[in-house]
Write a protein that binds this DNA or RNA. Structure first.
Length: 721
DNA sequence: TTGTTCCAGCTTTTT
DNA sequence: GCTGGAACAA
């Protein structure tokens, strides 16, 4: 047995965590301290050294990506398939449990998972049937309310009626919502977790089975768990002392969506026999970056206490740039990126991180103007697109006719003359009789109380669904999808769409067929689902990153939230201004301000080599000019770690002066065309072209050995020969 | 059924 | 100041 592979790459603290005897364990893993590595090696250790069966392993993450990575790394390390281990997201694993025990979970075998967009639509529909005004009862707010209740494990029947009108109305809606989901066999994301918890709580045999099976339970990003997730973990590990959690209280940035940092403290209370191990050695960033980040986060109260360190030296100072306005900020950042690339850096090693998505535009424009490839994270995901959802709705209906959400979605897409009036009638009947819309439609048609036109349209639609279901029977999955996409008329609909995006939608539908072809169906899956239902669940649970240009060398643009867990050699943390970061909404509340500070900590610790902080002295926000003060987080960084960058030659450059300059040949300035120069790194070369002026002046040089390069004059430190 | 106009709202996001 | 959604008109 070769355990050196498992143990050797670890430092002392990591090794201690990995090789500790089975017990409750809390690993406080600072940013870049090898958190995933510890988790992966811990599991490998237990299997190889302690003889744990892979079958007895449960490992839970938050994202599909993290789950995939963990599985992959375990397989690499152990050189075996991790097939029999339960490694997945909370939602994915809850889904699996519910499929296996649908009956005991009091769910129909055919239940379908809906994503948040589906949920929102369902709520809007519900409001209509309840005759409630969306203005007075915003659907978003209702969605938030319902999910918040579920995250806390609270059902409508647990809520006591109070005199509060708002509360009472919410309760009425929550009740009706539960009823509707029940009837349609629909399960939202929060419901997956809550149901799974109830399943274990209320069925002793099921609980015992899984308690026996999962001898070791591992959790990633524990600081992000919410109440019900932790309760679920506790049930599974009750009385077993076998819960191994990894997390970082300083990186808890999802409090606003129900994550309970308190779970870390409660873990210690609930597991008196637990051990805490801190991972503080950082393998990512330079000393200056870490020291600055430590100082910032030290301003928070009630931390578990952790200080990152590195033995690889201090590195460069952190650069601070005070931009004239947001355009100047973008100009500066992009020029720096170009200098980085000119000096041989990869664009994919560079990230621009911002607090809110709206900030990306300025940078995109500059990047575009300079022809710098970039990629913005956090756009629409593949399975979130309307055309894809429509196709899936048709597929769902062929599989389960009583899926009301899907029924409503496509009953008039493409338009077939079934208007709101007919639909409303159906809704009323369905609601009064507690049946599905499909059943209501059948009934109405049987009674013949619709106008001929409406009746024809409706029966035409139902006929179409029945026909599709029949035709598709027995076909391969991708054939099914292909048939449905065509027969439903969706392709034709989008082909005729004159707007430029019609073509793209058709392509996306083709891509869906392709996704179905590539779908890796596990025939003896533990959920005993058919291939189609499995595919549908996959679509809901995994929204799918769709960037095909992953391979292109791109500058990365994303919010601070989506940057968590990633690392880049060169990081720009932009918009460091009061009101933006920390955001206006968080400034008043001490708790939320601390979360912003953690976000700042997360952002800073993404940087490996160089960190730039920028803010604008004036910024156009919501149509008016604002003159924000620099972020308080800047003041929390000791000045000795910061170097101020002043790139502007003339301080009061007019706003509009920052235009992309056409590359032209200029002979001004210090250098002349054909001038021979020497560069520290690239050696000797000849100046071929020049552009820009003042601090933005750049020259193109053909180096003897390093080839053609564009260099920023201000930084290149060229020596004339 | 489609196109236009008007108006509120405006962090962060995974499943 | 822009955007998305809803209301309204043709």
């Amino acid at each position: 047995m070769d355990i050196t592979k498992i143990i050797d790459p670890l430092n002392d603290a990591q090794r201690q965590a990995v090789s500790a005897p089975s017990r409750s364990m809390l690993v406080l893993a600072g940013a870049g301290s090898g958190k995933t590595r510890v988790l992966v090696h811990r599991i490998a250790w237990q299997i190889q050294v302690e003889g744990l069966s892979p079958h007895s392993v449960l490992a839970v993450t938050f994202t599909n990506k993290a789950a995939r990575e963990m599985r992959g790394r375990i397989e690499d390390l152990l050189n075996m398939s991790a097939h029999s281990m339960w490694i997945g997201t909370f939602h994915g694993l809850a889904h699996r449990l519910l499929r296996r025990h649908a009956q005991q979970a009091k769910l129909p075998e055919t239940f379908q998972v809906m994503d948040s967009a589906d949920q929102l639509r369902l709520i809007k529909r519900l409001l209509a049937t309840l005759n409630l005004d969306e203005k007075k009862w915003p659907p978003k707010q209702i969605q938030w309310y319902i999910n918040a209740q579920k995250d806390e494990g609270i059902r409508a029947r647990h809520i006591l009626e109070t005199g509060d009108l708002y509360q009472r109305q919410m309760l009425i809606i929550y009740r009706a919502y539960e009823e509707l989901c029940e009837r349609s066999g629909l399960v939202d994301f929060a419901e997956l977790l809550l149901r799974a918890h109830e399943l274990l709580r209320d069925n002793e045999d099921v609980l015992e089975f899984y308690q026996q099976r999962f001898r070791q339970v591992h959790v990633d990003e524990f600081q992000d768990t919410n109440t019900i997730q932790y309760a679920w973990l506790r049930l599974l590990t009750q009385g077993k002392d076998n819960l191994f959690v990894v997390g970082d209280d300083d990186q808890s940035i999802y409090g606003w969506r129900g994550a309970k940092i308190e779970n870390i403290y409660n873990f210690q209370k609930h597991h008196p026999n637990h051990q805490v191990i801190k991972l503080e050695q950082n393998y990512r960033s330079t000393g200056h970056i870490l020291k600055a980040a430590n100082q910032v986060i030290a301003n928070n109260d009630g931390r578990m206490g952790k200080e990152l360190w590195t033995d690889t030296g201090d590195g460069d100072l952190i650069s601070l740039y005070a931009a004239f306005n947001e355009q100047d900020e973008a100009y500066f950042v992009v020029e720096r990126i170009r200098a980085w690339v000119n000096e041989g850096g990869a664009r994919s090693d560079v990230a621009i991180l911002y607090r809110s998505n709206a900030q990306s535009r300025q940078f995109e424009e500059r990047l575009m103007a300079t022809g710098t490839p970039y990629r913005v994270y956090g756009g629409l995901r593949f399975f979130d697109r309307a055309e894809i959802k429509n196709a899936l709705a048709y597929l769902r209906l062929t599989s389960n006719r009583h899926d009301d959400a899907s029924f409503e979605r496509v009953i008039n897409t493409p338009a077939r003359g079934i208007g709101p009036k007919t639909l409303n009638d159906l809704r009323m009947i369905a609601r009064n009789r507690s049946i599905s819309l499909w059943a209501a439609a059948e009934e109405v048609l049987g009674q013949g109380r619709l106008s001929t036109r409406a009746a024809n349209a409706l029966s035409g639609f139902m006929q179409l669904i029945r026909q599709m279901a029949e035709q598709v029977e027995g076909l391969e999955l991708f054939e099914k999808v292909k048939q449905v996409v065509e027969k439903s008329g969706l392709i034709a609909l989008y082909q005729n769409e004159k707007a430029d995006r019609g073509e793209e939608k058709v392509e996306n539908l083709e891509e869906l067929v392709n996704a179905a072809r590539l779908f890796d169906f596990d025939a003896d899956n533990e959920e005993n689902l058919g291939e189609l239902d499995m595919f549908l669940a996959h679509a809901a649970l995994e929204a799918g990153e769709l960037q095909a240009d992953d391979f292109e060398d791109c500058v990365q643009l994303m919010t601070l939230h989506s940057a968590k867990g990633l690392e880049f050699k060169l990081v720009f943390l932009v918009g460091m201004e009061e009101g933006l970061f920390p955001s206006l909404q968080s400034i008043e509340d001490a708790g939320r301000l601390e979360e912003e500070r953690r976000l700042c900590y997360v952002g800073m610790t993404r940087a490996m080599k160089q960190l730039y902080l920028t803010y604008a002295e004036s910024r156009r926000l919501y149509g008016r000019d604002s003159y924000p003060r620099p972020s308080r987080f800047l003041r929390e960084i000791p000045p000795e770690f910061i170097q101020e960058v002043r790139m502007r030659a003339n301080v009061s450059r007019p706003v509009t002066a920052v235009k992309p300059k056409a590359p032209g040949i200029m002979t001004e300035g210090q250098y002349k065309l054909g001038q021979r120069v020497r560069h520290e790194k690239f050696g000797e070369g000849v100046v071929l072209q020049m552009e820009g002026e003042g601090a933005h002046e750049r020259v193109q040089i053909n180096f003897k050995t390093a080839g053609m390069k564009w260099l920023m004059l201000a930084y290149a430190r060229l020596e004339t020969l």
